[in-house]
């Protein structure tokens, strides 16, 4: 790893200031960034830890919304987000126990790994991503593989999830990495159903709108029986072909609806 200066501010304001430095990079749980730095795929000159910022930690519930601080670990969400059980279960299924004790929701959403679980939860829930300068809806936030609308030095301070009537997340584990080979989050709201898919597309997390329309009319696994998922733009690698992933999208959507 290339040497860098390590700083650990205790407020969002100080973190924003530190991130203005040339070559500065935010560090959250470090479960992705640290291995990336070891490979020298990331070589920050200043690493700004967000782990000492108390105002960015914890789960609060109010007005039908669960709000999670950006630096809250997956383990904490699994334990404390019981007001949104499908989201708590998603958090409890990420990686392994030691990874869940460090990895954070803000880090996961900012990184937008195409096979990460949280982007599916955020997009299916119509979550609002709050940063140090603005609020962004999940529909506007994710911009393709590892890409988001975040500016340089912008920090996710919290994420707000409207609690649905029913929801479930089902993923097909890639057994070595425990990322989703494909994962589907289905959430039913009074205004309709939202379906978000991770792990499948070359463009990162996406909404399966045809399934949303079918499930909004009839919330049962049989409602999507006649739908087809195109393998075009799906990820194809040694773990699964594009056709296999397209097949998984439909199977897992059905399972998620049944589990919700």
């Amino acid at each position: 790893m290339i040497e860098f200066e390590f700083v650990k501010p205790s407020t969002v304001a100080d973190a924003v200031k530190a991130l203005a430095a040339d070559g500065a990079q935010a560090l959250s749980g470090g479960q992705t960034l640290t291995p990336t730095m070891k490979q020298r795929l990331a070589t920050p000159s200043v690493l700004v830890s967000l782990n000492g910022i108390a105002e960015m930690k914890g789960v609060t519930v109010g007005g039908g919304v669960v709000t999670i601080g950006g630096a809250t670990t997956h383990a904490t969400v699994a334990k404390e987000a019981s007001a949104y059980p499908a989201l708590a279960r998603l958090a409890g299924g990420i990686g392994d126990p030691a990874v869940r004790n460090r990895g954070t929701i803000g880090g996961s959403i900012a990184n937008n790994d195409p096979a990460a679980c949280y982007p599916a939860g955020a997009l299916a829930s119509g979550a609002v991503i709050v940063t140090n300068k603005r609020s962004i809806t999940a529909d506007d936030f994710f911009k393709g593989m590892f890409a988001t609308v975040l500016d340089e030095g912008e920090i996710i301070t919290s994420v707000s999830f409207p609690v649905p009537l029913k929801a479930a997340y089902v993923k097909f584990d890639q057994p070595a990495s425990r990322f989703a080979l494909t994962g589907v989050f289905v959430a039913q709201y009074a205004g309709g159903v939202r379906v978000a898919v991770t792990g499948a597309s070359n463009n990162g997390v996406f909404r399966w709108k045809e399934a949303e329309a079918a499930l909004s009319a009839n919330f049962s696994a049989s409602a999507i029986a006649g739908l087809k998922v195109s393998p075009k733009d799906m990820i194809s690698d040694l773990h699964g072909t594009a056709e296999y992933r397209a097949h998984l999208v439909k199977v897992l959507t059905g399972r998620a609806v049944s589990a919700a």
Binding site: F6, K8, L27, G30, Q31, T34, P35, L47, S49, N51, A75, P97, A98, V99, N101, R102
Partner: peptide
């Protein structure tokens, strides 16, 4: 490399000592 930090299990190869 798992150790406990403040009572929880973590992978010490992915955490900076200063953190």
């Amino acid at each position: 490399c798992v150790v406990h930090v403040d009572g929880v299990a973590v992978k010490s190869c992915s955490i900076f000592a200063q953190d």
